[in-house]
Amino acid sequence: MPEENDNRSPVALEQRGMSPDQRMFSPSAARNLAPILAVLKRVLPTHGVVLEIGCGTGEHAVCFAEAMPNLTWQPSDPDADARASTSSWIKFSGLNNVLAPLEIDVCSRLWGVEQTAPFDAIVSINMVHIAPWAASLGLFAGAGRLLRTGGLLVLYGPFMRDGTHNAPSNAAFDASLKERNPSWGVRDIADLERVGEASRLSLREAIEMPANNLSVVFSCDSA
């Protein structure tokens, strides 16, 4: 089981451009928008409210909200610059189904959205491997509290399966993450399944994605 002794916040692992109105541009978001959207359009309900944890630049939020207009998208990020970028993207897009970004620390017992729960889905993209294990624990605990029965927790990023990387490049990436911060690292789906059991979340499917990534979908079971 991974270590859980570091509470440093998630960070970006790439250089990002910025427009004069504070919209940040993520190269990785530009690459993965289309394949992630294809998965979300298949697995998410047609109507409802989706909470995004770790929205980053906000590009995903506005893209997904535009493509799925009957969903209300609630972005969140612990980083003030990310929230500023997301707010600028929302203003630039003119969409009315994306809410103002919230500051959520998944390691906190309360996220500040309890009054608007339950959510139909929670989405977290490229977060759990660049955050301490405590963030994964908090994410699953929060999802178990805040998702409706049948609601989905959707993760995207690199993952191991039963202790094995699915590509040498992911093993090298995992090593580089741990060199940067020993509490980071590519998470094992088996570990996440065990964590999910304590929060009534069961693995529904793991979907192969480009560049050796996976979309991992958990479903919230009845209490």
Rank of each mutant, 00 (worst) to 15 (best):
E205Q: 14
R42C: 02
V98A: 15
S199P: 00
M160R: 09
S136E: 03
E205F: 08
Q15K: 08
R204M: 10
H165P: 03
F173K: 13
R204Q: 13
R42D: 09
R83I: 07
N126L: 06
R109T: 12
L99K: 15
A135T: 10
A172N: 09
A175W: 13
S202V: 01
S108T: 02
C107W: 00
C63S: 10
L152R: 15
A206E: 04
V123H: 07
E14P: 00
V98L: 12
E205N: 08
V39K: 02
I90D: 04
F64P: 01
H129V: 08
A141M: 02
L192R: 04
E179Q: 13
N96R: 14
E208T: 11
V43N: 09
A131N: 11
L201S: 02
D21V: 06
N170P: 04
G112H: 13
G17E: 09
Q22S: 15
I90Q: 11
L110M: 13
M127P: 01
I207W: 03
P27G: 13
G58F: 01
W73Q: 02
E4D: 09
S93L: 11
D77G: 12
S202G: 02
F64Y: 14
L192P: 06
N32R: 09
F218N: 00
A167R: 11
E205I: 04
M24Q: 04
I36C: 15
V216F: 08
R23L: 04
W89D: 05
G163R: 07
D120E: 15
L71M: 06
Q74I: 07
V39D: 01
V195T: 06
F25Q: 12
A67I: 05
S124R: 01
P182M: 12
W133A: 01
G54R: 03
E179Y: 03
L51F: 13
L40T: 01
L44P: 10
G185T: 04
R148V: 11
V11K: 14
L137E: 14
C220N: 08
V50C: 05
D79N: 15
L139D: 09
E197F: 02
R161F: 09
D21T: 11
T116M: 15
L95I: 13
D6W: 13
P118R: 10
N213T: 02
D120A: 15
A167N: 15
L95D: 12
E4P: 00
D6H: 11
A61H: 07
M68Y: 05
S19N: 05
R109V: 04
G185K: 02
R145V: 06
I130Y: 12
R109Q: 11
W133P: 00
I207Q: 03
R31I: 09
G48Y: 06
V43D: 07
V50P: 05
E3C: 03
E52V: 02
E3K: 06
A80S: 14
E66G: 07
R204I: 00
E66D: 04
D79L: 11
M209P: 03
D188Q: 08
M209Q: 11
G94R: 07
R8C: 14
V62F: 04
G138H: 06
C107M: 13
E103F: 12
